[in-house]
Design a protein around this nucleic acid. Structure first.
Length: 208
DNA sequence: ACCCAGGCGCATG
DNA sequence: CATGCGCATGGG
């Protein structure tokens, strides 16, 4: 399985994907980062179209900040994100996530992301509701950390080439080892961002 | 009527 | 360690 060659083919076919999509374009930078985190949580096992509706209703209700989410009554929060499914669990996840970034980092993402990749990844994974894919999406797209996101489509792509592993980390290592060695950090981030987006594009098209 | 979507936590063997 | 199950909406 030639990982680089597959990227080139996908890029030639689909072009740049411009991920992560920001809906609230006029928001402050910290709130755009928060929007990416919220999107990453809401899209767990859920179609993005359903997530977009929830994100837009949060924006419209002025709830796209950790402070506002923390203050909002849970029932009300559930109502706004209902379209994204699992809305009771996800409302709780947003509460916990918001409380964490406020209490520990005063809502300042710079303070969080300036720490090492190992440190920030481990810390996200300790939060209830944040698993490996959600953590890595946040790290890659919100924090610009060089980490490769594995999702159901990525595994499906591997299987098509007869490549199969047991764990998330094994898939991740497989891609990172084949890509990481010859690139600088910033170009690696862009490459990982584009690659994951292209895989999702490929997967979505295939499942229609 | 069914199946799936940009997963995760928790209980069980 | 590895399965299995509940969570929930909306579009095909």
């Amino acid at each position: 399985m030639d990982v680089i060659n597959i990227f080139n083919q996908l890029y030639q076919k689909y072009g740049p994907q411009d991920w992560w999509p920001i809906l609230n374009k006029k928001a402050e930078n910290d709130n755009k980062i928060f929007e990416i985190c919220v999107g990453a949580i809401l899209t767990q096992n859920t179609a993005w179209t359903n997530v977009e509706k929830a994100l837009n209703s949060l924006i419209k209700a002025n709830l796209m900040t950790p402070e506002a989410v923390l203050k909002c009554p849970i029932k009300k929060l559930q109502k706004y994100i209902r379209s994204s499914g699992y809305y009771k669990q996800k409302a709780k996840k947003l509460k916990i996530f918001s409380q964490w970034v406020i209490k520990k980092y005063h809502g300042n993402w710079q303070r969080f992301f300036r720490q090492s990749l190992e440190k920030v990844r481990k810390e996200l994974l300790l939060l209830w509701g944040i698993g490996p894919e959600t953590a890595d999406s946040i790290l890659l797209y919100a924090g610009h950390k060089p980490i490769f996101v594995i999702d159901a489509y990525t595994k499906r792509l591997c299987h098509q080439y007869g490549v199969e592993f047991k764990t998330y980390n094994e898939y991740q290592n497989f891609f990172e080892k084949k890509i990481a060695c010859w690139r600088t950090k910033s170009s690696l981030v862009l490459f990982f961002q584009e690659y994951h987006a292209l895989i999702v594009k490929w997967g979505k098209e295939k499942s229609q």
